[in-house]
């Protein structure tokens, strides 16, 4: 499988745009995305980097809203920073948990 396949996992949280369920969008999809990412990761380093990797879909969502209306996005972040932080925290935590579980599930020997 291509070494790029694991990055499919980063796209999974973005599927939330089609889902009406908050728990799915805020937690379940990042968890599944992390599972895929971790399962397909070849090196433990990739799993260690999963919190940072989770920020990639975060950045894509922010980019989407910035392109939609940058001024409103800036106002949102100014007025409701707590919501944005909560969102990022959830995505990072659940993605990382998923990535760790996925990596262990595949149980391959560690490569440095």
């Amino acid at each position: 499988m291509s070494r790029w396949a694991k990055y499919l996992g980063l796209a999974i949280p973005l599927l939330g745009i089609m889902s009406p369920w908050h728990i799915v969008n805020a937690a379940a999809l990042p968890l599944v995305g992390g599972l895929i990412y971790g399962y397909l990761a070849e090196k433990r380093r990739h799993v260690a980097l999963s919190p940072a990797a989770a920020l990639v879909p975060v950045a894509l969502v922010l980019l989407y809203y910035a392109l939609t209306n940058a001024a409103r996005l800036a106002r949102f972040l100014e007025i409701f920073p707590i919501f944005a932080l909560l969102w990022v925290l959830f995505w990072v935590v659940f993605f990382t948990m998923g990535a760790t579980a996925g990596y262990i599930l595949r149980h391959r020997p560690v490569k440095s």
Partner: peptide
């Protein structure tokens, strides 16, 4: 997920939560 009060997920949902209001 089951322990966290559901409204936390609502507030953190970037697609159907408050952030959706950016795309007015």
């Amino acid at each position: 997920m089951s322990l966290i009060p559901p409204y936390f997920f609502r507030l953190a949902d970037p697609f159907q939560g408050p952030m959706k209001a950016v795309s007015r």
